[in-house]
């Protein structure tokens, strides 16, 4: 899956479901913690859901760098 729009839409869907936020809030620059109300456990769960959806294994040191929606989309585009 390389199409950025497709990846973004799928990531958005997962974020809306996992974090219970409105779709409009999920913009590329949104920070999971500062803008989308996630805590440390939410982020672990979110990363897991992304791994599951895109068939990835995201190492912990890479996962720690994923702070915004765009970080997640870019990581997936490069690694999925």
């Amino acid at each position: 899956m390389a199409n950025k729009e497709q990846v973004f839409d799928k990531v958005k869907e997962i974020i809306v479901d996992q974090l219970g936020v409105d779709e409009e809030e999920v913009v590329p620059e949104a920070s999971f913690i500062d803008d989308l109300g996630a805590d440390s456990l939410d982020i672990v769960e979110l990363i897991m859901a992304l791994e599951e959806e895109f068939g990835l294994e995201i190492p912990d040191d890479e996962a720690e760098k994923i702070a915004t929606v765009n970080d997640a989309v870019e990581y997936i585009r490069e690694n999925a």
Binding site: L41, V44, E45, M48, E51, E52, E57
Partner: peptide
Amino acid sequence: TKGPGRVSPF
């Protein structure tokens, strides 16, 4: 079914 890496942090 999916292994320890998929057990929820919650």
